[in-house]
Simulated scan of single mutants.
Amino acid sequence: MLVRINPASCPSDGHLAALTGERAFCSEFKYRRGMEIFGEGEDAEYVYQITSGAVRTCKMLPDGRRHINSFHLPGDMFGFENGATHRFNAEAIIETTVRITRRRNVLDAMTSREKGAMNLIGFVTQNLQHAENRMLLLGRKTSLEKVAAFLLEMDQRQDHPDMMILPMNRRDIGDYLGLTLETVSRALSILRDQNLLRLGGATQRRVELLDRDELARLDA
């Protein structure tokens, strides 16, 4: 069931604050795990910011495989398109709350703010850098290097916590890195046996990075 929490003006933070200022007119919705937020080919009328939970954007390939394009974490915005429709599906990985605002509201707020255009350039540049890094990740790295790079990416995006909690499962990670579930599991086991990380929790999604420098050397 989709729950609408707040249909009024709400405080903004993260990317939304940088683009629109302190407040933006938006609604909050809560999605259960696995629920679709928008589908490929639907009108790209709204943009979204995560306040809690996590989202994956993905599409099914003609051969039946799933390709995950991005993971979005609290504070991230997603749903921006350079066309009129969405190129990917967006799904809640776990129970997730998002703020939704019309794309036009964001554009209007940006044009009325002195730093709006500059912040938009920064936002677009950040996304381009992520796309470039992802191309290198998929095309030029071994499976072990891919998993090390992924863990460092999640560690950086979560501000280097003592214990990192991954919202996505190993199949999600594999579909993001272009690897099988078994290959991801094997790489994590190798990194654990090399004392580079420690895994915990019933689903092994609690990850403590023990040697970030060595992981970075692997990634390099």
Rank of each mutant, 00 (worst) to 15 (best):
E91S: 10
T183L: 08
V3D: 06
G122V: 01
V3C: 03
Y48M: 03
T203E: 13
A18T: 05
P167Y: 13
A54V: 00
V98I: 07
H67Q: 09
A117F: 15
H67N: 04
M35D: 14
E36P: 07
N6R: 10
T85Q: 12
F150Y: 15
L181W: 15
L188Y: 14
M110N: 04
F123M: 03
I37G: 05
T96Y: 00
D63M: 01
L2Q: 14
L215T: 01
K141M: 14
M77G: 01
G34M: 08
A131K: 14
G83R: 12
I190P: 03
L144K: 15
S52K: 13
E28M: 08
L138I: 06
G122P: 03
E40I: 04
L218D: 04
E132M: 10
E28G: 01
S27L: 08
D63T: 07
T97K: 02
F25K: 03
R66Y: 08
T51Q: 10
T183I: 04
A8N: 14
I94W: 09
A202I: 05
A84V: 05
L196Y: 02
I37C: 04
T20W: 09
M163P: 00
L128M: 13
E81P: 01
F25Y: 09
D193M: 11
S185D: 13
S185N: 14
E91I: 09
R65V: 01
C58P: 01
L179H: 11
D219N: 05
Q158P: 00
L19R: 02
N127P: 00
A220F: 13
R192Y: 15
C26G: 07
I94M: 06
E145D: 05
H15G: 00
G178Q: 08
K30W: 10
T20G: 03
I94C: 07
T203V: 11
M168E: 13
